[in-house]
C-alpha cells in the first residue's frame, strides 16, 4: 500500500520547507482549496512555496492508457518538484499518481528519481496528521454544521487515507463525521470514465449522493476535487440542498466561499 517513508523530521520549532503541488483542478476550478492548503500548512509551521511552472500530474492521459504522452509530463513534474524538502498535494489521486504510478510508469534513472520524489510527497491530510502535526488555533474557528465525508478511492486504497481527515475535523473543528453508507464505493467520477460512460457514471454518482443525503448532513466533503465536482454537479442537477466543499476549506474554517457549483447569489 502506502510505501512512503516517514524519515527524519525537523524539530517542531524549526519550520519545514514545503512545495505545494496545487493540482490542475484546484488551480482551474477551486483556488480556494489551494489557498486553504497554504493556510493550513502555515498553521502547521511550514514555509510554503508554489513552484510556478507546475501544471497537471498527467492522470488524464495516463488513466486513458496514453503512457507515451504521460512519460514526458511525469518527468517534467519530477524536475519541478524534486528540489523540495516535502511536496504536499491536496488530492489523494494526484498524490497517488506521483507516489504509486510514476515509479510504475518510468524506467531506469527516472524511476529512481520518481521513487525519491514519492518518498517525500504527501497528501495534505496525511501530511498534517503524520508529518507536520498541525495544532488547533487557540480561538474557536467557524462553527460547522453536520458533515459527511466521501472517501475518494485513490486516496483510500493507494495511500490509506481514511482516519486522517476525520481526525483533523475532530481536532481542528470539533466535528465528528456522520458516516455515509457504502463509503468505500466509487462515486463514478473515474477521470475520463465519467465522460466516456456517462450513463453508468450517472447511476453511480446518483447512488453516492443518495447515501450522502441519507445521513442528513448539511455538508459533504472529501479530499479529491474530481469526485467533489462530480458530486456537486449531480447535486445541482437534482436541486439538492447539500453544500459540497473540499476538506481543506473546512479545516481552515472557510465557509465564505460559495460551495462547489453554487453561485452564492441565491
Amino acid at each position: 500500500m502506502n510505501e512512503q517513508q516517514h524519515g527524519d523530521h525537523p524539530a517542531s520549532n524549526e519550520s519545514m520547507q514545503v512545495s505545494l503541488f496545487v493540482t490542475c483542478l484546484a488551480d482551474l476550478f477551486r483556488p480556494a482549496v489551494a489557498f486553504a492548503s497554504i493556510k493550513l500548512l502555515e498553521q502547521a509551521n511550514c514555509e510554503v512555496t508554489v513552484p510556478p511552472s507546475q501544471t497537471c500530474c498527467g492522470q488524464p492521459a495516463y488513466n486513458s492508457g496514453d503512457y507515451e504522452a504521460t512519460v514526458p509530463l511525469a518527468r517534467k513534474v519530477i524536475e519541478i518538484l524534486e528540489p523540495a524538502d516535502y511536496v504536499v498535494v491536496p488530492s489523494g489521486s494526484c498524490a497517488g499518481m506521483i507516489c504509486q504510478h510514476y515509479p510504475r510508469l518510468l524506467e531506469g534513472e527516472w524511476r529512481d528519481r520518481a521513487l525519491q520524489l514519492a518518498s517525500k510527497t504527501f497528501e495534505l491530510t496525511t501530511f498534517l496528521t503524520q508529518i507536520a502535526k498541525i495544532q488547533p488555533l487557540s480561538e474557536q474557528s467557524t462553527e460547522l454544521p453536520t458533515i459527511t465525508y466521501h472517501d475518494a478511492c485513490a486516496g483510500l486504497r493507494e495511500l490509506n487515507i481514511k482516519e486522517q481527515p476525520r481526525q483533523l475535523l475532530q481536532e481542528l473543528c470539533g466535528v465528528a463525521v456522520k458516516e455515509l453508507d457504502q463509503s468505500d464505493v466509487c462515486c463514478g467520477f473515474g477521470g475520463t470514465f465519467c465522460a466516456k460512460m456517462p450513463e453508468i457514471s450517472g447511476k453511480m454518482v446518483g447512488d453516492k449522493l443518495d447515501n450522502a443525503l441519507a445521513t442528513g448532513a448539511k455538508i459533504l466533503t472529501g479530499g479529491d476535487l474530481g469526485c467533489l465536482l462530480n458530486l456537486a454537479g449531480r447535486a445541482q442537477r437534482q436541486g439538492e440542498d447539500l453544500e459540497i466543499r473540499h476538506i481543506a476549506e473546512l479545516l481552515c474554517g472557510d465557509l465564505d466561499t460559495p460551495p462547489i457549483g453554487q453561485s452564492g447569489q441565491r
Binding site: L28, R30, P198, R234
Partner: peptide
C-alpha cells in the same frame, strides 16, 4: 462536455485560476 452534462451540471470555476490570483 455532453458526456458530463448529460448526467450532472458542470460546476463553474471561481473568478480566476489559482496561479493568476497567487501571482
Amino acid at each position: 462536455a455532453s458526456g458530463w452534462t448529460n448526467e450532472r451540471n458542470f460546476p463553474a470555476p471561481q473568478k480566476k485560476t489559482f496561479m493568476q490570483l497567487y501571482k
